[in-house]
Design a protein around this nucleic acid. Structure first.
Lengths: 338, 338
DNA sequence: ATCGTTGTATTCAACGTTGTAAACAGGTTT
DNA sequence: AAACCTGTTTACAACGTTGAATACAACGAT
C-alpha cells in the first residue's frame, strides 16, 4: 500500500476544473457557481482530500501555531495555565505546541533563541532560569509574550501578577490571625529566580509592616518548587528547635508538601501552625485542611497572553512592549482558620 | 521595520556559493571543503538564518510533529503522561502538539478524522467518548496509537493496562484488610466509557472472589473523574445510611475528593473507611493519609506509545495492529493502613 | 594522452498551495 | 457594432527547501 497523496491537482483532474478553482472552493471564495462547487465538493469527498498545511503555511508565511514554553507540564499551575492557553488560542484559530524547558537555562535559551523558527508564529514563554542578558541577546524576531515579572525592558510584552503585593498580603493575613513567628518556604539562591526574589520581598515587607523582626532561620531555601521540597523544608524548620507558628509557602505545591510533614508529625493545622500558599491550584481546595492561598486570575493570564501575542503577530508593528497586570485574590481557607 | 525574511538564497549570495551548497552545509553533508563551510557558516551567523521548517516539511513530506490528544491537560494523570510523552518524543527528534478533546465525542471525532492532516506525522490518542464505530469510520490514514483499552480491532496500535485485573487487585486488597462493605465510585452510564466499565468489572470480580454480595447501592455513578465528583459521590454514600467501610475509587482524583468529604465529616481514614484509587498521581502521595492506589507504569506507557508510533511512521507497513500491555503495581499506603 | 575515480559544487525540478493578473463568457450600455 | 461591465474560471509564478543528476576539477592508474 503506497502513499496515494492527494493534492488539489488530483481533485481538479477528477472534477474537470483548474487547480485554482478547487483552491477557491476550499477557501470559500464566493464567485463559484453552485454547479462547479458541488462537483468539486464531490471530488473532494471521493478522494478524501485534505489540504496540506505545510504547503499552505509556506505560501502564506504563517503557520497558525504558537508555542507555549513552560518549565514542567505536570506542575498543576502550569497544567492549568496550559489548558487555558490552549482554549484561548483556539478561539483565535491558533494551535498550541508545548515546550518543556525543565527550568534549565540551556533549554530556555534554546527556546528564546527560536529553535522552532518559522514553525511557530509566536511564543508564550514562562522563563525560570533565564537571565535578562539572555533575553537581551535574543536574535530571533518571533513575537513573544513573557509570563511572570518583567525581567527585561526589551521588546517583549509581559503578563504579570504583582508578586510582591500578593506575597505581602498573604503574609499580613497570617500576622492578622495573631501569628508571631512566620516562616517562609521557597527562597532560592539562583539570582535568576525572580519569582522567589519577589515573593520573599513581599514577605519581608509584611514582617516590617507588622512590626516583626525578620529571622534568617525562618527563611527556608529550596531547589525547586515541588511537594518534596516543601516537605523537606518544613522538616528542617521543625527540627531547628525554632518551630514557627505560621508558614508562607511561595507556591501551593510547597505548601502541600509542608502540610504533609506537619500532619505526619502530629502538628495541628491551623491550630499549631498556620499555612498559606500561592497559585490556588485545585489540590489545595481539596486538601484537609484546605489551603489558604493567593489566587491569580489564571483565566485572565491566559487570555491576555494570547491576545497580546495575536495583536503583535497581526501588525508586525514594534509598538513598544506592553505590560498587562492581572488581578489576584487572597483565598482564605481552613489552613489559616478561614 | 519590515520582514527581512532570509532564506538559503540570501545566505548563498552573501557567501558566494550556490543555494544547494548552503543547504548541504546546514544538513551536515560531508563533501564540503572546510573553507567553503566556514564561509557559509559565517554568512549564516551574519544573517541570522533559520531554516524554514514549513518548506522543509513540504519538500520531505514529513513534519516531525506528532499530536497527543488527551481529554484535559490539567488532570494530573494526563499532565504526567504528557510530560513523559513530550520527553520520549524528544528522544526520537519529534515535537509534540497537544490537543484537548474535553472528553467531547464531537471533538474526539474531529481529532480521529485528522483535522490536522499533513501537519502531524502521527497521533497518540487517549479517547474517552469515542465509540468503536467512530474509529472504524476513520478515513484519515495518519499513523495512530491508542491509549487505553482496545476498543476496536482496526489498524491502530494500542498501549493498554489490564484495567480489570488491576481493579480486581485493588478491591481484593481492601477485602484482605477485613472490610466487608466495599463501595465503588466511578461507574458511568455512557456506554462508550470503557475505563469505567472495565474497572467496574474488576471490582465485581473481586467481590465475587471474596464471597461478598454485590450491592447496587454501593456503586456510585459520576459524570466525570474530577475531585468534585468524588466528593459528591462520597457524600451520597454517607447520606444513604448504608455507609461503606471501604471505597475503591476508579481514579485518584475521585479518591481525593472522597477523602475530603470523609475527613470533613469527621470520619477516620483508614480507621473507619479505607480508600483506594487508581493512577498513582503525585497528589495521592502527599495527601494525609497517603492514598493506596494502582500505579500503572506511565513511563512505559509513554515510551511504548512513542516507539510504536515511530515504528509505524517509519515503515508505512500496515503490519497488523499491535497491542502492548504495560505493567502496573498496587501501592499500599496509609489510606488502607499500609 | 586517455580513462577512470574521487571529491566538490552546481543546475534543475518538484513538493502543494495561493495571490495576481488575465482570459472568457454573457449581458448591458453607448 | 463597439465598448463596457459583471461574474466565473484559468495560467502562471512564487513561497524555501532538497533529491537527482550533472559538471568540473584534480589525481592516479593505465
Amino acid at each position: 500500500m503506497e502513499k496515494p497523496r492527494v493534492g488539489l491537482k488530483d481533485v481538479a483532474r477528477l472534477a474537470g476544473v483548474s487547480v485554482k478553482t478547487v483552491s477557491n472552493v476550499v477557501n470559500g471564495y464566493v464567485h463559484v457557481t453552485s454547479a462547479t462547487r458541488s462537483r468539486v465538493e464531490a471530488a473532494i469527498k471521493e478522494l478524501n482530500y485534505r489540504p496540506n498545511l505545510s504547503a499552505r503555511n509556506l505560501r502564506q508565511g504563517r503557520t497558525g501555531i504558537i508555542a507555549l514554553a513552560v518549565p514542567e507540564l505536570d506542575i498543576p499551575y502550569f497544567a492549568e495555565l496550559a489548558r487555558l492557553v490552549v482554549t484561548a488560542a483556539g478561539e483565535h484559530g491558533l494551535t498550541v505546541l508545548i515546550d518543556q524547558t525543565g527550568a534549565s537555562r540551556e533549554r530556555e535559551q534554546l527556546v528564546a533563541e527560536g529553535f522552532r523558527a518559522h514553525l511557530i508564529d509566536g511564543l508564550i514563554f514562562s522563563p525560570l532560569a533565564l537571565t535578562p542578558e539572555d533575553l537581551a541577546a535574543r536574535m530571533d524576531d518571533t513575537p513573544m509574550v513573557l509570563l511572570g515579572e518583567r525581567v527585561y525592558d526589551g521588546p517583549a510584552d509581559h503578563v504579570v501578577v504583582d508578586n510582591v503585593a500578593a506575597a505581602k498580603e498573604a503574609t499580613l493575613h497570617l500576622a492578622a490571625t495573631g501569628r508571631r513567628r512566620i516562616a517562609a518556604i521557597g527562597a532560592q539562591d539562583d539570582p535568576a529566580a525572580e519569582t522567589s526574589r519577589l515573593r520573599l520581598a513581599g514577605y519581608l515587607e509584611a514582617l516590617a509592616e507588622a512590626g516583626m523582626p525578620a529571622d534568617d532561620r525562618l527563611v527556608q531555601h529550596v531547589e525547586t518548587y515541588h511537594r518534596a521540597d516543601g516537605a523537606r523544608a518544613m522538616a528542617r524548620l521543625l527540627d531547628s528547635g525554632q518551630a514557627p507558628d505560621a508558614v508562607f509557602c511561595f507556591n501551593d505545591l510547597l505548601a502541600l508538601g509542608a502540610l504533609r510533614t506537619l500532619l505526619e508529625r502530629g502538628h495541628a493545622v491551623p491550630g499549631e501552625v498556620a499555612l498559606a500558599g500561592f497559585d490556588d491550584i485545585e489540590d489545595g481546595r481539596y486538601a484537609t485542611p484546605t489551603i489558604t492561598t493567593i489566587s491569580p486570575d489564571k483565566q485572565a493570564i491566559a487570555r491576555q497572553a494570547v491576545d497580546l501575542l495575536a495583536a503583535r503577530m497581526a501588525k508586525g508593528s514594534p509598538a513598544e512592549a506592553r505590560e498587562v497586570r492581572v488581578a489576584y485574590e487572597l483565598m482564605i481557607r481552613e489552613s489559616t482558620g478561614g
